[in-house]
Amino acid sequence: MTIQDIQNDIVDEFSMFDDWMQRYEYMIELGKSLPLIEEQYKTEENIIKGCQSKVWVHAELEDDKLLFTADSDAIITKGIIAILIRAFSGQKPQDIINADTSFIDDIGLKEHLSPTRANGLVSMIKQLKLYAIAYQTQLN
């Protein structure tokens, strides 16, 4: 599946819920299904700067595709990173770099987060794309 296909699925899933309490509950469930980062990668250099809570992300290249694992010490934040990893993990670095992230606006996520969580969301997207740029440079 392409990033766009996955993002469309996420938008469709969120549109099934009538209110934001249900959407938060769904995000928490997504966080529970997150491919967890191994303890050895829960290091200072894998923490995403700009997040109020701690979010660790690890990336590795396998068969020219970037695989992400992550964890957070906050349940909502864990759900947010789970959504991003679902959209980007298993994709080619160049596709991640070029990916549009407007699906975040389509599900209404940014407008329903506190300003600090919204900043954290932006930092997460930025970090995932920075990993993609770093790995794309290695591929060239």
Rank of each mutant, 00 (worst) to 15 (best):
I83E: 06
F14T: 05
L84T: 01
I97W: 09
L66I: 14
E111G: 02
I37L: 14
W56G: 01
M1F: 07
D12R: 11
I3P: 00
V11G: 03
L139T: 05
E25K: 11
N98I: 01
I80A: 06
D19E: 14
Y41D: 13
L67T: 03
E60R: 13
L36K: 13
E29W: 06
G79Y: 13
D5T: 13
N140P: 00
I107V: 11
W20H: 08
S114L: 10
I10V: 12
K129Y: 06
E45D: 15
L109M: 15
V122H: 11
F17E: 12
Y131C: 02
L34A: 09
I133S: 04
F88E: 06
E44I: 09
D73T: 10
D9Q: 14
R117V: 03
K32V: 00
P115M: 12
I48L: 05
L84A: 07
S72C: 03
D63W: 04
C51P: 03
D63F: 08
I10D: 01
E13D: 13
M21V: 08
G90M: 09
D9Y: 05
E29Q: 13
E29Y: 06
L34W: 12
S123M: 07
A59R: 03
L61G: 00
I37N: 04
D100N: 15
G50V: 08
K126Q: 14
H58E: 10
I47N: 04
W56D: 01
T116N: 13
W56K: 04
A70C: 09
I37S: 04
Q52H: 01
Y24L: 13
L30G: 03
T2M: 08
E60P: 00
T137Y: 11
T77W: 05
L36F: 07
I81R: 01
T43S: 11
D95Y: 06
K42M: 15
I10M: 08
G108Y: 13
S53K: 10
M21P: 00
K49F: 05
D63N: 15
G120V: 11
L128D: 05
I97C: 02
T2S: 15
G79H: 13
M21A: 09
L30H: 05
I133T: 08
L36S: 07
M21T: 09
E29R: 12
